[in-house]
């Protein structure tokens, strides 16, 4: 069951590669949140209850509901109507994301000697690299945040594969951190929207030598 969910997660990554509309991105993020909820529920059922509740809370409340809503708000407020505007053609994006998944597969096979669930590893690394890929190839500032969130999702999956040995306090800190950073980023996106006409990263290349 976990594996199926993970594969679904990987599919969502590919879909993200070809998605054009910003709302699609947000939806995908929400879906990913749900998938993560499922995975963590299955995987972590045996750890202590408070911790489990907290993690489930994080996936459902933060990842699935709060952040997508917040992003939606940001998009509405800044009247971002244009598409995702990648630097690369969609076709190439798909090819590259496929390559990333393939590469992660090879990598997960190479790595030996450590007790790890390969499927988790594969999907986590793919998510990570896809997130970076999205950040690198998209023009919109908002899409960068989305890429960042995809990376965070990858990290979440990776941490799930360890069976989560972090203590409660640390976990809380980390979660809060992510949440706050997304908030701060969102605030700045708003500011950028106010300051510049287009929320393009092209506007943000004045500081250079």
């Amino acid at each position: 069951m976990t594996n199926i969910l993970l594969i679904a997660f990987a599919i969502s990554l590919i879909y993200m590669g070809i998605a054009n509309r910003l709302s699609t991105y947000i939806n995908i993020l929400a879906v990913q949140g749900i998938i993560l909820f499922g995975v963590s529920f299955i995987e972590l059922i045996q750890i202590n209850t408070i911790n489990l509740i907290f993690i489930l809370f994080e996936t459902i409340v933060f990842k699935t509901i709060a952040i997508p809503l917040f992003l939606n708000y940001v998009i509405k407020k800044n009247k971002i109507v244009r598409e995702a505007e990648p630097f690369l053609p969609d076709f190439l994006s798909v090819v590259i994301i496929t390559c990333i998944i393939l590469g992660s597969f090879i990598l997960s096979n190479i790595i030996t000697g450590v007790h790890i669930q390969k499927m988790f590893f594969l999907v986590a690394i793919s998510a990570l690299l896809s997130g970076l890929f999205i950040i690198i190839t998209r023009k919109k500032v908002v899409t960068h945040i989305m890429g960042y969130l995809v990376i965070e999702n990858g990290v979440f999956i990776l941490s799930l594969s360890t069976g989560n040995k972090m203590t409660m306090l640390v976990n809380t800190g980390i979660t809060l951190d992510i949440f706050v950073s997304v908030l701060v980023l969102g605030v700045f996106v708003n500011r950028i929207g106010n300051t510049f006409e287009e929320m393009n990263v092209d506007n943000l290349t004045n500081l250079k030598d």
Binding site: V155, L158, I174, V184
Partner: peptide, 24 residues
């Protein structure tokens, strides 16, 4: 600020991956 926060967040995430790998 945008660049700083964003790149630091990415960087710190990369570190976090390292930490997770360490825990693994």
């Amino acid at each position: 600020t945008w660049k700083y926060v964003f790149i630091c967040s990415i960087g710190i995430t990369i570190t976090f991956i390292g930490i997770i790998l360490l825990s693994i």
